[in-house]
Design a protein around this nucleic acid. Structure first.
Length: 588
RNA sequence: CGGGGUGUAGCGCAGCCUGGUUAGCGCACCUGGUUUGGGACCAGGGGGUCGAAGGUUCGAAUCCUUUCACCCCGACCA
């Protein structure tokens, strides 16, 4: 290809709304162009990279027996209603009607469509297992698109779905996909982690995310400094703490705590470690069908609530903040919320010395306790009475408490696998694999006949890769202050032949010759034959990030050209006649 | 959805507060010339519904109202 004929609108200045390096360089390098919020055009260079990424994904998947299909981007709303996701998916689902008034959605993901397809054509266990995927456009009407290709509304995703006779076979495929994904991302030169993940709205039993490590990542990942444990913060678990602070021994009683409402205030009021305080977090939980209720989540005072875990613990779709008025209406005292009520044990003699007992607080709200509160004693908690707390609370005396994992793992917590110290890092989610089970096949009635002649729903797995997001993720990891540094497998061109001075006929003919040889050898090469000055062309080379540049310039008078490696800008000299051979070898 | 900001040439911006001829600058673009190892220089040139609608006024990019779009922080996010 000739640079002079290619549409590569490089820019000296970045668009003002670009923040991330990937966004800035993809726009400045003439790869993409924004047409609306979260919607981008791919220009020739961007399209070339996209296709190369696509090819890698396809090659690896096909090599392990997956089959590519392509489903309609516009999908009938009816299927979404059947699976129950029409309502659940919310505003992100773009809905519209055709001229006849039939309802459709733009596919944000294609479980329904693919299950429908498998259900229609796969009827026997003899056809199983089967893994179908597509690399196709998706649309999600994101509340807030940002960061260029990182979080667009329209994007390219590879979504795959596997169908099995039983769980074991599905798990086998799940593990195969993990291996295959590892190969795919390794081929793209990415530094990534496979982490335990929350299954989110898609549902299912187990899931793992593939996270490209990058400061700009939108996800927080918990990683162990000692072993290979890593998890999304939404799913991270930790071991119980090693050292427990000294307990504030106290008799069970009510304590006057005027205006003391926060954990910090309680800490200094009682001079007690927050480990022994009960933190109460009130949320309004939204469920399917618009039902909602107030839920109180209880944790130790030194912990934070992990909202995704909290929502999962009660099967809620979403948690909202609650106003003080709402709390009061439910019989809850803001600032003094607690799980228990205290009263005199009137079974014994009534006097000032009569011992107290506790019982579950009576209020119009669901209660969930974090596991770390199981059998917790010497606790201090709100009394559900204004200006009072209860000290010396032993939760083990209460029956039928609902304990769940609710806490957000902190830095320095101990690893659940090896006890090592945990730390945070940031990641870009580029892949997510799920063990789905019969979550979709069951309600959509996608069944097959098993060996025993019985009709059963498919056991499924689902596997996604953010293909267009990968362009951004690669650049986040591979750039310098001058521009993109594409790994050779996905660079828009592997080599650019730069002619230093287009008016120098010797340079032109030498450059053309090198270009022709490389082309014949099957190297992805472009020749920069533009009537621009040397510096201008080099800046473009660095901005766009071709893997190598062969510079045909001043040194040609000595019969030499230069080969510049984009990654480190290191350059070596080569004889004109050997240059093509040399750079081709370097690419291997 | 809450809070904040910005819309003037392809890109980046000035002008607006304090209304007044043909709306300006840099980059990019076109023509000619000079240049050719790190985003050149000279001369000439093209390109604008000043986001949109309505209003105030003799007169609006500028003031008022409404609206749309885009961006940032947050909420949300298979």
């Amino acid at each position: 290809m000739r640079f002079s004929k290619l549409l590569i609108p490089t820019l000296k200045e970045a668009p003002k709304d670009a923040v991330l390096p990937s966004h800035i360089f993809l726009v400045r390098g003439g790869f993409i162009h924004q047409v609306a919020s979260g919607i981008y055009d791919f220009l020739p260079l961007g399209k070339r990279v996209l296709d190369k990424i696509r090819t890698i994904v396809k090659e690896e998947l096909d090599s392990v027996g997956c089959q590519e299909v392509q489903l309609g981007f516009v999908t009938p709303a009816e299927l979404w209603k059947k699976s129950g996701r029409y309502e659940k998916y919310g505003a992100e689902l773009l809905r519209f009607s055709d001229r006849k008034g039939n309802e459709f959605v733009l596919g944000p993901t294609h479980e329904e469509m693919m299950v429908e397809l498998a259900g229609r054509f796969v009827s026997s266990y003899k056809q199983l297992p089967i893994n179908l995927y597509q690399i196709n456009l998706k649309f999600r009407d994101e509340a807030r698109p940002r960061f260029g290709l990182m979080r667009g509304r329209e994007f390219i995703m590879k979504d795959g779905y596997s169908f099995h006779t039983d769980r074991d076979d599905m798990v086998r495929e799940f593990e195969l996909m993990e291996k295959t994904y590892r190969r795919i991302f390794t081929r793209m030169g990415l530094d990534f982690r496979v982490v335990e993940a929350d299954s989110g709205a898609i549902g299912g039993e187990g899931s793992k995310e593939f996270m490209v490590l990058a400061e700009s990542g939108e996800d927080t990942i918990v990683i162990c400094q000692k072993c290979d444990y890593s998890a999304n913060i939404e799913a991270a678990k930790r071991a119980e703490p090693e050292n427990v602070p000294e307990a504030p021994e106290a008799r069970l009683m009510k304590f006057y705590t005027p205006e003391v409402t926060t954990i910090e205030e309680l800490e200094s009021f009682f001079h007690v470690d927050p480990f022994y305080l009960v933190k109460s977090v009130a949320k309004r939980a939204l469920y399917d069908g618009g039902r909602s209720e107030i839920v109180l989540f209880f944790l130790r005072g030194n912990e934070e609530l992990q909202e995704t875990k909290a929502a999962n613990s009660i099967g809620a779709n979403e948690l909202l903040d609650v106003s003080e008025e709402e709390l009061e209406a439910a019989g809850i005292v803001p600032g003094f919320m607690g799980p228990v009520e205290i009263k005199r044990d009137i079974s014994t003699q009534e006097s000032d010395d009569t011992p107290y007992v506790i019982q579950k607080a009576g209020m119009n709200a669901k209660m969930v306790f974090d596991e770390s509160l199981k059998n917790a004693s010497n606790m201090i908690c709100g009394a559900n009475v204004k200006d009072y707390h209860i000290v010396g609370v032993d939760l083990s005396v209460l029956k039928d408490l609902d304990f769940e994992d609710l806490v957000q793992v902190k830095k320095e917590d101990r690893c659940i696998k090896c006890g090592g110290k945990l730390d945070y890092t940031k990641g870009i989610e580029v892949g997510h694999i799920f063990q789905l089970g019969t979550r979709y096949s069951q309600p959509l009635g996608a069944r097959f006949l098993d060996k025993d002649g019985k009709s059963k729903p498919f056991v499924m797995g689902t596997y996604g890769i953010g293909v267009s997001r990968l362009l951004a993720a690669v650049i986040e990891q591979h750039h310098d202050e001058r521009g993109c540094i594409w790994p050779s497998g996905i660079a828009p061109f592997e080599v650019v032949v730069v002619i230093g001075n287009i008016k120098d006929e010797n340079q032109v003919s030498a450059g053309e010759k090198i270009y022709e040889i490389l082309k014949k050898r099957g190297v992805d090469v472009v020749i920069d034959d533009r009537p621009e000055r040397f510096g201008f062309k080099m800046k473009d080379f660095e901005l766009i990030g071709f893997t190598y540049a062969v510079v045909v310039g001043k040194k040609l008078s000595d019969g030499k050209v230069e080969i510049v490696k984009r990654a480190d800008l290191g350059r070596i000299e080569a004889d004109v006649d050997e240059a093509a051979q040399k750079v081709a070898d370097m690419l291997l």
